[in-house]
Simulated assay, not measured.
Amino acid sequence: MNLKIFKTSTFRLAAIYLTVFTISTGAVLGYIYWNTVVILQQQVDDTINAEMRGLAEQYRQRGLPGLVEIIRERSRQNTGSIYLFSNFIGRRLAGNLEGLPAKALSSSGWIEFTYAVQTSAGRQKHVARAVHRELAGGYMLLVGRDIEERRQFASLIRTALYWSLGLALVFGVGGAFLLSRNFLQRIDSISAASRAIMAGDLSERMPVSGTGDELDRLASSLNDMLDQIERLMQGMKEVSGNVAHDLRTPLNRMRTRIEAALRSADTDNRASREVLQQVLDDTDRLLATFNALLSIARTEAGEARAGFSDVDLSQLGHEMAELYEPIFDEQNGTLKVDITPHVTIRADRQLAAQATAN
């Protein structure tokens, strides 16, 4: 996996958006889950409280036989309600619960406990929520509801919440990865085109995908700029060619006339010959300098790079030293060279030699 993808601004922006989206989605789903559980539990508690008040009122009005009759009748109905009516020693008088839960003995008010339920699949453990109350005469009344379905429903919502957040993270990271990879591929193609242009290929252009996005607009602007630069370079080449023609021709004519003057000059007039010879040497140096400048201009424009080769600068230095050593000897001088061996560069050998001579 290319680690550059994780360093792109696209991936970072996508990661920030994914974080904000995940947090907001989790907050919304958590709020829905919390309110659903609370509302369901409130409904169960209201139902139980209503039944407890109704049964207590029946006990006051109809006494013990009337309450036992009502509880037995309601216990036969499969409504999910749980009843237990027992005397002061804990003996069950009516109800569908076999005995008082242990939690009811150690605490008062609301309790949750497990109990056995006979279903088509056999006896199963369910969870119930109930409230118990002591009535006149030492009797104990417990009223509750089976909340197994509510617990399963809450578990289903909780599982859906976890899956939603997990899928959001997976698809978010995957989407960020794909977006970043496509973005990075386009950036790499633009970088490759830039390197080709810097290497001297002015005909290279930035790739345009055709989507019209910000990268396409940037690439189009750069291509327009490169077109303008190419036109300017072409114009410079034409001007350079014209200047070369305009300057070389007079210089060559001057050189030809000086040579003719030298041939026709009086051999005894040494002063005139020396002056003409100096003018001829200066003209040759001027032509050589001008040719070198044109060669350098062509090299900078990328035209002469095809003629580049590996040049041993150490060997070239020794050759130039041997070439100019007689000149130092004529002037009673000494030429000393200190050249590092095996130094190689890629360049035009003629231009490198001329640069060394200069």
Rank of each mutant, 00 (worst) to 15 (best):
Q41C: 04
Q41S: 09
Q43T: 09
V44G: 06
D46I: 11
D46F: 13
T47Q: 13
T47Y: 11
T47K: 12
I48F: 07
I48M: 09
N49Q: 15
N49C: 06
A50M: 08
A50T: 10
A50Y: 09
A50E: 10
E51K: 10
E51D: 11
E51L: 08
R53A: 13
G54W: 12
G54D: 14
L55C: 08
L55A: 07
L55H: 03
L55D: 08
A56H: 08
A56K: 11
A56W: 00
Q58P: 04
Q58L: 14
Q58A: 13
Y59H: 12
R60W: 11
R60T: 11
R60C: 04
R60L: 12
R60E: 14
Q61P: 07
R62W: 15
R62P: 07
G63K: 04
L64F: 05
L64K: 09
L64Q: 12
L64R: 10
P65L: 05
P65N: 06
G66S: 07
G66R: 01
G66V: 05
L67A: 03
L67W: 03
L67S: 02
L67C: 05
V68P: 00
V68Y: 00
E69Q: 03
I70A: 06
I70Q: 02
I70L: 05
I70P: 00
I71D: 00
R72S: 03
E73C: 01
R74W: 02
S75A: 08
S75C: 02
S75L: 02
